[in-house]
Design a protein around this nucleic acid. Structure first.
Lengths: 145, 145
DNA sequence: ATTGCTAAGTTAGCATGCTAAGTTATGAGG
DNA sequence: CCTCATAACTTAGCATGCTAACTTAGCAAT
């Protein structure tokens, strides 16, 4: 069957997401989306919803809804941003940090195992992925498009 | 910022999907999900909803709903499968074929342009992606897991 | 031919993505 | 000071992913 890159990438990620989601729900009672959001808040330190949306590749309304849920669950702390405007300042609570640190490494290890099993060179693939993402970031904020 | 492969892959595809969706909706009034489904029905020739779900990396209920819509729009033809069971036999209508053939190449070209612009070697990346996907397929249909 | 298994498909309801349109806070120009 | 523009956020409503549970059709074993 004649495949193509956009379809392959889409399907690969759809499946990885589903596997990740199942593991997280079964073992830790959290969805993959929320886990990714927590991970990124952890990496960014204190951040805004706008920055989180960019980092996750989703829109502000999605983050708005998710933030409300994560705050209600006591995983992130939401404060007015001292920088002003309507900004909110997001950060992980201790409970949130605990979840991120305990799961994140386990997670990358499972993916690394899959990659190793396929014979694809991990570092190279990861670097290509990161580079494509960086290029996309740059492309998107160009004026003419 | 310390990134990781699962997040990068997820975000990369989320953004590519969104770009694709915008272009398709604006220029051709069809969502990216439906376009992918049509593409795959085209590649598979006569197929079942089950096989389509596997190929797209989604579940049967998703395909069930989408098939109903695509059939109502006159893009796919749905017949009882001569192989029997509850199977439906899906195939593209002429209108469906027209959409797929006119858009598919344009699409891969845009992705190829992005890849070229990033300096990532296209063939290698595409091959790695396909190999990961194939490995995942094999892993998933193993008995113990 | 009855009973029971399995596979394909559907239906119901929830999670989370999106766009469009509103709200709120800040700052710039008159 | 008032008005307007802009940026961040929220709200409303739709699209489409999922799981769980049901229906339907064929097949196998008694």
């Amino acid at each position: 069957m004649e495949r193509n890159l956009s379809l392959d990438l889409h399907v690969l990620v759809a499946r990885l997401d589903r596997i990740a989601d199942r593991i997280l729900r079964a073992e830790h009672n959290i969805s993959y989306s929320r886990f990714l959001a927590l991970t990124l808040v952890g990496e960014l330190g204190f951040t805004t919803q706008r920055a989180l949306a960019d980092g996750l590749g989703v829109t502000e309304p999605s983050v708005s809804r998710m933030t409300a849920v994560l705050a209600a669950e006591g995983l992130v702390d939401v404060q007015p941003d001292p920088a002003g405007g309507n900004r909110r300042q997001l950060s992980l609570t201790d409970k949130g940090k605990q979840i991120v640190t305990s799961l994140r490494q386990e997670f990358e290890e499972k993916l690394a195992a899959l990659v190793a099993h396929s014979g694809v060179p991990y570092d190279e693939f990861a670097e290509h992925t990161a580079r494509l993402l960086a290029t996309l970031d740059r492309t998107e904020q160009e004026p003419t498009r």
